[in-house]
Simulated assay, not measured.
Amino acid sequence: MSYPPATGHMVPPYPNQYGTLGASANGNLNLLQQQQHSQSIAHLSQSAPAANETVHLYVPNTVIGAIIGTKGVFIKSIINNSNASVKISPLSPHEDQNKIIERQVTISGTPEAQWKSQYYIYDKIRQEGYAGDDEVRLRAEIYVPTALIGRLVGKGGQNVRQLQQSTGAIIKLPEDSQQTSASEVPVKIFGPFPASQFAQRRIQSIIQMSRDSINTSNEDSNN
């Protein structure tokens, strides 16, 4: 079965290894930011084939019905057009829907699938007029290995400050990551679509580069 396009607007092209951004996705990214974004994409493209990533996107509960669509048509179109897995957290029978502010949407797929599916969701919320004349801003969560949180923070928080300045997104790291026994901790990203995507790609790039560095060090020590 084929489904109609998930949105009436063209999806901004996913940045290739040269960091090309569609004009409508570019938003407020300046030339330096695009160059940094290009470096992130280039590193990811030189690594192993794109692996699936999981991102939790938090969406206003009032627009969940529109994202699902009549008989699930719209969410099926997102899945069909993005090749991502998109699952909306179910409501508990005991929960009062009128008191729920937002719902978790779990998206799994390659970086390009993430780009497309998240764009469809952002654009649908915009079409529904939820944000009025303002940009749609959502919260996304990425789970990062606890051992690598220090790489994101940097000395005195330098890295995370630079990430926020270069992406335009607000990035919140867990304050108690050093005390937790969990193998992964959530990193929260707040912002409009281009800023959120830029931040997600930069964070994934830092994680991958850190893993590559650790693997190289381990190989050298074994030789």
Rank of each mutant, 00 (worst) to 15 (best):
Q179W: 12
E102G: 11
Q114S: 05
R161A: 12
F74M: 13
D123E: 14
V73L: 14
N26L: 14
R161E: 09
P93R: 07
A23C: 07
P12W: 03
P174R: 05
P192A: 01
P5V: 00
A50S: 12
A42F: 09
N61W: 05
E112T: 14
D134E: 14
I121W: 00
H94T: 08
R201L: 12
H43T: 07
I100A: 07
L173M: 12
G150K: 06
N81I: 08
L91M: 14
L163E: 00
G157V: 00
N223A: 15
I171Q: 00
Y58P: 02
G156T: 00
L148I: 10
V160G: 03
S24C: 13
T54C: 12
F193G: 03
N218G: 14
A50P: 06
T54Y: 10
G22N: 02
Y3H: 11
P5L: 01
I121P: 03
V187H: 06
A48L: 06
S92D: 13
S47E: 03
Q204A: 10
G72Q: 03
Q197E: 03
K99M: 13
M10H: 06
T146V: 05
N61I: 05
K99W: 07
T7H: 01
G27C: 01
A48V: 08
D96M: 06
Q35K: 10
T106G: 02
V160T: 04
L148M: 12
L148N: 05
Q46H: 09
G19S: 11
E175H: 05
M10D: 13
S210R: 12
I149Y: 09
I78S: 05
R126I: 06
I142H: 04
Q46G: 04
E128D: 04
F193P: 04
S217G: 11
E184M: 10
K116D: 03
I100V: 11
S40G: 05
L138P: 01
K116G: 02
R151A: 14
Y143I: 09
W115A: 02
N159Q: 10
A131T: 02
S24H: 13
V105N: 02
A131G: 05
Q164R: 03
E95A: 06
P12C: 05
Q178D: 11
G157A: 02
D220C: 15
K124T: 06
P4E: 07
F74A: 13
L152H: 02
N52L: 07
L91F: 11
N16A: 08
I171S: 02
N61L: 11
P174V: 00
G129V: 10
S85R: 15
Q17K: 13
I68V: 12
P15M: 05
N223P: 12
Y122A: 04
